[in-house]
Design a protein around this nucleic acid. Sequence first.
DNA 1: ACGTTCCATCTCCTTTACAGATGGTTTTCA
DNA 2: TGAAAACCATCTGTAAAGGAGATGGAACGT
Lengths: 284, 284
Amino acid sequence: MAGSFSAAGRKLRRVQSAISHAIQTLEDTQGLQLFDRSGRTPRFTEAGRVLATQARQVLRQAEAFERAAQSIAAGLEPELSIAVDSFVPTGPVIRGLANLQLAFPDLTVTLFTEGIGAAERRVRDGGATLGLCALLPSTTQDLQATALTQVTLAPVVAPTHPLASETRPLTRDILAEHVQLILTDPLQRPGPSFSVVSPRVWRFVDIASRLEFLLAGFGWGTMPHHLVEAALDSGRLVRLMIDDPAVLPGSIGLFAIHDRRRPLGIGARWLLEELQRQGWCAKS
Amino acid sequence: MAGSFSAAGRKLRRVQSAISHAIQTLEDTQGLQLFDRSGRTPRFTEAGRVLATQARQVLRQAEAFERAAQSIAAGLEPELSIAVDSFVPTGPVIRGLANLQLAFPDLTVTLFTEGIGAAERRVRDGGATLGLCALLPSTTQDLQATALTQVTLAPVVAPTHPLASETRPLTRDILAEHVQLILTDPLQRPGPSFSVVSPRVWRFVDIASRLEFLLAGFGWGTMPHHLVEAALDSGRLVRLMIDDPAVLPGSIGLFAIHDRRRPLGIGARWLLEELQRQGWCAKS
DNA sequence: ACGTTCCATCTCCTTTACAGATGGTTTTCA
DNA sequence: TGAAAACCATCTGTAAAGGAGATGGAACGT
């Protein structure tokens, strides 16, 4: 590394005997020859070379610990836990988190991605600091919400489904004749949900499996546009033309929420601004 | 962790004051409150909880260091470096290495995968302990070779190539009319190589790019059968029927080689047996 | 109310880490 | 070839750190 024990001592501001002695005790405790001392200047043995890189790994970890401690002491929140509802576009979130790690490499980030409604619940019960979700009309006072973007919704159905070849204008009554596939909060009491039109609904927690059922033609439902764009382009799904916003809203707001009683830390505020900077122009 | 400082002390066979003092000095040096001492028993602060997991990471690394040192002290070679020629089937190698890591988790393994001839060269100059390669007839005394399997060779050509529609029996003379794509050792003097038939050869170091050129119909060449099986099945390549083994050998032996002067370590011997246990029945 | 369990703090002792000095060996250079 | 320089091992003494043990006060359970 430094070429000689003496040079190492100069580098570390220690006398040569300290280096020599430290290495000897290390060799003794591990029962290994780490240096070949036959020459003028000690040379790594193979074991020494391999273990030195291992030791450097330990040091790197220890330094990471110190940096994290210093960052926390300097005011950074120790941990930032984020809950994301599953239909939030992942692209901007991933980019935002990547930039967050660049800006705060010592910040421990925890991420929950779960079904609909879970993000809000986690923020409410303190399990997560920041939530990214669509806001149901249950807005209460203890949650602070910041608008991020609008997700355009597309009512879709498989081309094999009767609704795809329906010629009449799609009124609420016609839609009600068919099974509607909806997202549901598993913990919420199954009651009259938002924008539920059909009396016969199939409930899904996972948006991906709902998409599977839509593709298979089991019913109709509204999907975030960015998730079905490819399927629409390739014809595996067709869009239902519903003009009446009273039946189905054309878009839904995406918000970052957090508990008002617990002010956001430095990292959380930075991420919030970063997420607003992100272009949320859909795509993945 | 243990519920209280006293309990932690009992677990670590230390008196309670030692624990208490150690944690206090840690808190002082980092300038952080790690425990909330307001209650009867100290409770982690958020910073303490996060930093504790970080500290456990450091400990895991340190334990890995100790285990590696002990393994070496017990006789395991400090490092096992393996050089593999690029056309050796990767499947059995990957399986063998995975099992090696299970059997010897503390063994540092280094892998080189390079063009033809590189494995033998690395073993020769000491850069690698073990080499997996086909043996050219340059077998010398200082290399010990262990047979692993035979790789069947398939002379192939793109279906668009004139040779694909050749009706005459494929003699050496007919083959010689076309460009032959061969693998070559970049450091070897370009001389009369093994099983080179055509006077016009295109030389490749990388077997993957040679396959590209074969698929594009630039010439003919012999490929390991397992690498072109899919292309043959789908008709993107056709096999040339050459019966004369004097023109082209039907298969080539695959060997593990090492330097006789440096006896193999425990891990290397284990891997060698493991590789012989592997079914080398091609596929990937 | 009393015993138990917990923590913080103090003192004392052992171990460890390091500095400084010494002697021996190899390399370098005149 | 011979002196200077650089290197290492080893010894001794000292400062710092780590841990043991004792003590006192607070919280908890019975």
